[in-house]
Each structure stands twice: as structure tokens, then as C-alpha cells.
Write a protein that binds this DNA or RNA. Structure first.
Lengths: 203, 203, 203, 203
DNA sequence: GATGAATGAGTTTTCATTCAT
DNA sequence: GATGAATGAAAACTCATTCAT
């Protein structure tokens, strides 16, 4: 009777997911502060009450967007960083991978870096903690490589990681999914720059 | 007529400056949309009428913040990029310098990347154009170095510049003026990473 | 069928009672308008559907709280006022008794005087009518005493009853069940004041 | 040019006063919770923004209503209680007077006793403190009379004062300004009841 | 009987901006 | 030049009630 096919699937997609998708898109497009709850629920095809049934506040949507992306990336980093291979191989794989997921979730990434500061204190703290854990796992990979002699020991690992993620976060200002470069390509270039710099190796 | 004589201050009243300083600080602290005009004028010690005498709208403050930082950095880039020395020397100098001014104007930088999207379309376009000119001057320096053989030619210059500025914009998330590292030190590290990467030169 | 046998509970399910108890407590604590239906059903350990099965609307709870207290007090007044003894004895007994039941049902009393005006017109009218009947029965007792010469005839009986019940309704602003005075003691004092005033009898 | 007469009186009455008057009337009529800010400002002939220019929140109106009535009554009590005459004379005068001002400010009184519990904690505390001071001044008058032998010493003064003010607060449930009894008359009756009780003096 | 997702009309509050003085 | 009272449009959020299951 509804638009579902044969199964008893109910609505096409659960409401919370639909709301998050709509919110992510609108936040990325117009900014969190310029997006009203009304616009979100209209985009999701429901009313405000429905949204507040699932999310206690507008900033819960924001938090959830961050949290999901972070959880996804943290899980993948864990797997790749804890895999086999030299530290350099693992760092390279992890770095290319995070660029891949960042490109796939460009809207989330945009929202993340523009609007994290708009979260209420407690949620901001939670996100920061999740972020820090992620950062530290990445940093430990750099340090491993420094101890093994694969990386220069004279650059603080913390600083190097911050530098690299700056580039990652910047992605959304210039990269577009339908542009000439694919995520994989961007990843290889970025990681190349990160690990080898601009100067020719034999110079 | 006012208390300024003939010195560098010029004949302009210091009021617009005071307003911009207050706005910059509050925008960086609480976000543009969470800062009311009332808070700004209170912080600057004036009234709303006075502010609207100098700025047509709240977003004029935002625009002006961007514009001034960009103008400053563009002017310095012009000077350094057009100076003497090899392309690598000039790029290095320009890169260290932009990190220096970014550290000196950390609030402006923060506001820039958090709130640019909140500008009305026309002002946003203007800022983007200024930004693009800046980016292009920087990129041309990279290209010069690629042509001269100082830099690897296999990395798109655009991408490299974006990568580097990602790191620069990220600065405000981890660097603090009273932390252990000075702007100069950060600059050297960043530029080192950018130009030489993480891997030892003889590997 | 349920767990109640043949005892005083009767065949009625305890659910409406549980809801009313929870509502009474919450209304007294936070006010009618500051208490949501959700809070009531949560406190009663049921769901909204269950509540709406027994009560057509939130204000039915309010009405029922009033109605039950009034019915209880009216029944007791009837018994005492229609008993034996002089009018003075019967008024004294009735007055002490109403203070007793008021102290026992302090939450209901609180709700009554704070929130009666929030009832929709028709229910408010019903409560007022019940209240008036109660008042009139009490007043007739005073008038009886005035006719018998036990009470001063120069005070309008209506006014005297209103004066007395003012004191009763005020109870919830200062009396607490675990304070130093018991309901009986308060009753004796109040009735003493009402019937004899503050001035010494031989003055 | 406006509707003022000859003087430069400006608007007929200052806006805050107009708002308070409108709010008092509506709160008394329909209850605080059933009165929207919109209704208040409409009644006062302005817009919401204007109201929030003078009152930080809806409950500020509530607080102000209480506070003004209490200040008025406290000042009058102070004058009468500290005057000349026997304690009985002064208590009588003060009691009649408070009934007078209560009748004159019946709406405020109604609002007071229905809605004090709706104030936020801090304002509620402030009102309670003001109220307690008032109560204590009144009580001290009763105690003075008890020490002088004019009043029965066997009734706790606190309780007597509570009893009396119960009657006062009850006023708004039965007295109307255009009814047969004037404030003075009510006052005399109430005070008569309070001081002499219902029973004939020679009984 | 009972559930709880969803509604929709309502609430208080905020704030950039204007304009009479 | 400067003030600050007032506007008006919009915001986030609440909640009693309904209804398909």
C-alpha cells in the first residue's frame, strides 16, 4: 500500500537516519546556525515533534554526525594500524584510507570542522575525547616509524599528525566527488607529500 | 581634531578598530551566530547606534575581519614571493611567514574557517576571490620551483598548496601563543614537513 | 482475576488510583502546567495509552483530585453536622475534622487552591458547585448557632465561614506532617481562634 | 501632537507600568500558565520585543507584581505597627489596613497565591524572604499584645498570624469590589473575628 | 487493553535592524 | 554623530492528544 516493494520493510529508511542525512546535507550546505529545525524536518518529510521524539535537541544531530564519522574512522584506523607490515606501510595505508572515508563523507567532514565549537560543553568534550584517541593512535604509528628509523626523528610526531590532518580537513574546500581526481588519487598524492615532501629524493 | 596627531594612526577614529577587535575575539570564542551585536558593542564600550554608524550590518564585521587578514598576508606574500633567491628559498620564506602571521592572528584565522560560510553570497564571493588570488600567487611559486627542478614535478601544485594550507588553518586547533613552541619554530617544522616530508633524505 | 481478593480494594483496578496519586504529588510539587502527562505516567509506571484509557484528558485528573477530596470532606461534614449535640459542639467537631482531613491530604489541598482556575469552564463550574454545597452546609451550622445564641449574630455567617476556610486553605503554606504540631493540635488552635478569638474571655 | 494634553508627558503611561497592569489582569483572570506573552503585549498595545526590552522573562512580570504589592504592604505595616497606641490598637489598625490594600489589589493578591510556586527558584526565594519579614513584623505585634496581657498567651503567635492571613488571602475567592460590602467593612468583620472570635464576649 | 511514534498548534525567547529624538 | 526603545520575523522546543498496530 505504501511505496515499499514486496517486503514488510515499512518506511523506506528509518526516520532517525533520514533526519541525520537531511541534517548533514543542510548543515554542510548552509551551516548549522543557518539551518532551522523546520528545514531539516521538512527535508526529511516529517514534523518537528517527530524529530524531537528521536533527538533531544538540535545539537544532538550535530553530535551524532560527528560521532558516527569518528567511530567509522577510528575502527578502520584500528584495523589498519594494528595490521601487518612495516610502520611506514601501515601509516601509508591508514593515511590513504582516512582520505578515502573523508572524501566519501565530505559533508560530515565539512560540518565537523565548521561547527564542532557550537556543541554544548559536555558534548564538545565527548567529541574532543574521541578525536584525541584517534589522533593518538595515529601518532603512535608515526612514533613507531621514528623508532624504527623509517621516519625522521627530529619532527615532533604530534605536530606531524596535526599537519597531515590539516590537509585532510581542508579537503572539503577544494575537492569534489565529481571532479577529475578520485579519493584514491588524492590519498596517494597527500600521503606522498606527507611522507616524502616536495623535494626530490635525490637532491 | 581627535586625539591622534599625524602618526601612523591616521585621522580615522579608533572606534571601528575597537569594534573589530571585540568582534574578532567574541566570534572566535563563541561563534558568529552566538555573538549578538549587543555583546560586541558592550565589549567595545559603545552603543549599537555607534556601530551601525561605521558598519552597515553585522556581517560587515565578519567580512572586514577576513579582508584585513587576507590583505595583510597577501601583501607580505607579494613581497616575499617577488624577492630575490631561488624559488625554494622564496617559497620557504613565504611559508614560514604565513605561519607567523597566522599565529599572530589566531582569532582571525579561527573565525575565518569557522564562519566564512555565514557571509551573504556577495561578500562570500568577494572573500573567495581574494583567497583565490592569494592561493594562486602561492601556487605560482611552487610551479616556478617545479620548472626549475627544485620540486618534484609529479605533484599537482594546486594540491600541494591546498595540502599545506590545510596544515596552516589547522593551527588554531592545537597551537597556543603561550605553549612551548613559538611561531617561528612551528613554521620551520611545517615547512620542513612540506618540503621534505617525513622520510629521511637518504633512505 | 487480578491480584485483589475481596478486601476493601473492590474490583477496580489500582491503575487509576496509582495515576491519581502520582498526578497529585507532581501537581503539588511542580504545578499542573509544569507537569507533563509523560511525567505522570512514568511516575505511575505505565504508558500514555494506559492513562488515556482511564482518563479522557489531563484535566480529568485534576478534576478527579478535587472531586475526591471534596466528596470525602462533604460526607464527613454531613455526618458530623447532622449529629447530636449543641450547634457549637457540632461546629467545633466539624471544624476540627476538616482540618484533620486537610492535613492528611495536604497535596490535594495544595493542588486545589493553586490550580482550580486551570480547569476548563464546565469542570470548573462543577467543582464550584460542589464547593458551594459544602460551604453552605457549614454556614448553616454557624447560623444554627447564631439562632441558638451560642454565636454572635452580628457577623455574617458567610463571611465567618470564608474567614475560617481561608485559614484552612492556608495550611499547606506553613504546616508540615513531620513538624512539631499534629493535625489535631492545629485543629484545636484554629477552632479556638475561630470561636474565641485572640482576646481573653474576661477582658 | 500625540494624545497628551499640554505637558510633554509623552505616552499616557510608561510602558513597563502598562505591561504590568495588563499582565496582572490577565494572570488573575486566566492564570499565569494560561496567559501567553503575546496576550499580554497585545493587551498593552505593543510587541513582544518591547516587553523583553523591559522584562528579561515572563516570570519577571510575576515577580514584579508580587514585589510591588509586598513592598506597599510592608511599608504600611511598618508605619502602623510602629505607631502609637496599645498593641491591640495597632494590630487592629494594621489588620484592617492590610485587608484594605488587599481589596484594592485583589488581582495582585489572586496572582500571588496561585502562582508564587511558578517562579524560578531564586526569585521564589526572594519573595519568600520578603514575605517572611512581613509575617514576622505582624507576629511581633501579636507577641507584644500577648506580653501586655491584651491577647491570650496560649495561642502560638505564628499560628495566629497564619490563620489570619489565610482569611486575607481567601478574600479574592468571594469578595468583589462592586459587592455590598466595602473593604473597610470586611476589615472590621475580619478583625473582629480574629480578635474576638465567634462566641459572645459574655458567655 | 495497551503501545509509542507522530502530529500540530502552541510556547517563550532572541536579535539584527530602524528611527525619532 | 549617537542613543536606545521598539519592531517583526524567526528560532528552538514542548506537549496533550491521536491512531495504526
Amino acid at each position: 500500500m505504501t511505496q515499499g516493494t514486496a517486503e514488510d520493510a515499512g518506511p523506506v529508511s528509518p526516520l532517525p537516519e533520514r533526519l541525520l542525512r537531511a541534517a548533514t546535507h543542510l548543515f554542510a550546505e548552509n551551516g548549522y546556525e543557518n539551518t532551522s529545525v523546520q528545514e531539516i524536518v521538512t527535508a526529511a518529510g516529517v514534523t518537528k515533534g517527530a524529530m524531537y521524539h528521536y533527538f533531544a535537541a538540535k545539537d544532538d544531530l550535530l553530535y551524532e554526525i560527528y560521532h558516527r564519522l569518528l567511530a567509522l574512522q577510528a575502527e578502520r584506523l584500528e584495523r589498519l594500524a594494528g595490521g601487518t607490515g612495516t610502520p611506514e606501510e601501515r601509516l601509508r595505508a591508514a593515511a590513504v584510507d582516512v582520505i578515502g572515508t573523508s572524501c566519501e563523507h565530505l559533508d560530515e567532514l565539512t560540518v565537523f570542522f565548521r561547527s564542532m565549537h557550537l556543541l554544548p560543553k559536555d558534548k564538545r568534550k565527548a567529541v574532543r575525547a574521541e578525536r584525541r584517541r584517534y589522533h593518538e593512535r595515529f601518532r603512535s604509528l608515526v612514533e613507531e616509524g621514528q623508532r624504527s628509523g623509517a621516519f625522521r626523528p627530529d619532527v615532533p610526531a604530534d605536530l606531524a599528525v596535526n599537519f597531515f590532518f590539516g590537509g585532510v580537513h581542508q579537503l572539503s574546500t577544494w575537492w569534489h566527488p565529481d571532479g577529475p581526481m578520485g579519493p584514491r588519487e588524492v590519498g596517494e598524492y597527500y600521503v606522498g607529500l606527507f611522507l616524502n615532501g616536495l623535494c626530490p629524493l635525490e637532491a
